[in-house]
C-alpha cells in the first residue's frame, strides 16, 4: 500500500513537466482539497467514532483567518499556518460539545457551524455577506498551486497515518468501539476525543487557507457551507470509515462522479444522495469493507450476503447461488437477533 502511494506521489510530482493542461491541474487541486478534508474528517468521524458535523466551521475558520491575515500583509505560508492554528483553537473551544452523545452530538456540532455562518454573514469586520476579495498574486502560476496542493495533501495523509498507527490511533479506536470499556482501562475519552478533533480541525483549517488562496474570494455562505461537511462525510462513508485508504478512494470517486455528471446540474446532487443512502444500507463498512469481505470470501471459499440487502435479492442469492445465510459485516455475533436488539442498542444516549 505504501509503495502504491509513493508511486502515485511520484507521478503527480513529475506530471507538470509532461502534461500542461489547465483542466488537469484544476482537477488535481480540487481532488487534493477533498482528499485532505475527507482524511481529516476520518480522524474524528471514522477512528474516534464521533460523527462531527462542524467540519465546515473548521474549514471556514481556516479560510477566513488566512484571507484576513494575508490582506493584513503576512506572507502566504505564515497566514496559512495561522489559519490552521485558529481552526485548532476553535476545536478546543467547542470541547463542551463532547458532553453530547450520538445524534445529539451531530446536531450540536451542526448548529455550531450554522451559528458561525450566520455570525459571519452579519459581522462587519470580516466583510459580512459581501465576503472578502483577495489581491491576485502575480508570482503564483497554476503549477505553484498544484505543487502546494499535492504537498499539503501528502503531508496530511502521512501525518494522519502516523497518528492512526500509533498509540493515539489505538486510543481513538478503543473509544469508538466501547467508551466505557476504554475508560475502565485508563483511556480518558474526553482528552482523546478533543485531541482527535484538534488534529482534524488543524488539517481542515490548513486546506481551508489554501482554498481561499486558490479561489481568491470567500464569503460566509460558501466558506461555511454544509457541503464542506457533507462531502467529506460522503466520501468517507463511501470508501470506508475508520480505514486509511477509504476516504481517499471515496474522495476520488466523488470528484470523478461530479466531473462526469457536471452537465446534469442538480441531478448530480440527487445521484449523490441516492448513492449515500444505498451505501449506508447495503454496505455500511464502505467499499474497503466490501473489498476485504470479498477477499475473505475468496480466501476461505465462504460466500455470504451482506445484511441490509433487499430481501428478494437476498433470498434469490441464498436459493440459487448457495450463499450463506448469515452475513459478517459486524463481528459481534449477538446481532443475529435483529428485532430484539433495538431496545438495548439504541438507549445509549
Amino acid at each position: 500500500m505504501i509503495s502504491i502511494g509513493l508511486i502515485i506521489l511520484g507521478v503527480l510530482f513529475a506530471a507538470p513537466t509532461y502534461v500542461q493542461i489547465n483542466y488537469f491541474f484544476h482537477f488535481v487541486i480540487i481532488l487534493c482539497i477533498y482528499i485532505t478534508l475527507s482524511v481529516s474528517w476520518n480522524i474524528v468521524g471514522g477512528y474516534a467514532g464521533q460523527c462531527n458535523f462542524a467540519h465546515s466551521a473548521f474549514f471556514g475558520a481556516g479560510a477566513y483567518t488566512t484571507a484576513l491575515l494575508w490582506n493584513a500583509g503576512l506572507l502566504p505560508y505564515q497566514a496559512m499556518i495561522m489559519g490552521a492554528f485558529t481552526s485548532a483553537l476553535l476545536a478546543i473551544l467547542i470541547t463542551p460539545c463532547f458532553r453530547l452523545r450520538g445524534s445529539y452530538f451531530v446536531l450540536g456540532t451542526m448548529s455550531l457551524s450554522e451559528i458561525l455562518r450566520i455570525v459571519m454573514l452579519n459581522w462587519r469586520v470580516s466583510g459580512g455577506a459581501s465576503g472578502i476579495h483577495l489581491p491576485v498574486p502575480e508570482q503564483f502560476t497554476i503549477t505553484t498551486y498544484y505543487y502546494v496542493a499535492v504537498v499539503l495533501t501528502a503531508f496530511t495523509v502521512v501525518a494522519t497515518w502516523f497518528v492512526v498507527k500509533g498509540k493515539l490511533g489505538l486510543a481513538f479506536r478503543a473509544i469508538r468501539d466501547n467508551e466505557v470499556a476504554a475508560e475502565s482501562l485508563g483511556v480518558n475519552p474526553l482528552f482523546y476525543k478533543v485531541i482527535s478533533l484538534v488534529l482534524s480541525a488543524f488539517f481542515a483549517g490548513l486546506i481551508g487557507g489554501f482554498y481561499s488562496y486558490y479561489v481568491l474570494f470567500i464569503e460566509p455562505n460558501n466558506a461555511f457551507s454544509v457541503f464542506w461537511t457533507a462531502i467529506p462525510l460522503f466520501a468517507t462513508i463511501l470508501g470506508g470509515a475508520g480505514t486509511m485508504v477509504g476516504p481517499i478512494v471515496g474522495a476520488v470517486i466523488y470528484v470523478g462522479l461530479t466531473e462526469l455528471t457536471a452537465g446534469l446540474g442538480v441531478l448530480s446532487l440527487l445521484i449523490l444522495g441516492i448513492v449515500l443512502i444505498a451505501i449506508v444500507i447495503i454496505a455500511p463498512t464502505g467499499l474497503v469493507g466490501l473489498a476485504s469481505r470479498y477477499a475473505y470470501g475468496r480466501r476461505t471459499g465462504e460466500k455470504t450476503v451482506q445484511r441490509g440487502v433487499p430481501t428478494f435479492i437476498r433470498s434469490w442469492l441464498i436459493t440459487y447461488h448457495k450463499v450463506g445465510r448469515e452475513s459478517m459485516t459486524y463481528f459481534a455475533s449477538n446481532r443475529k437477533e435483529k428485532s430484539f436488539m433495538i431496545g438495548e442498542t439504541k438507549n445509549k444516549y
Binding site: C51, V106, L233, L276, I281, P284, G308, I342
Partner: peptide, 15 residues
C-alpha cells in the same frame, strides 16, 4: 438500518 449503530439512521436521513 434501525437496528444498526446510532449513526446510520442519521446518515440515511441526511441522504
Amino acid at each position: 438500518v434501525a437496528t444498526l449503530t446510532a449513526h446510520q439512521p442519521v446518515l440515511v436521513a441526511f441522504g
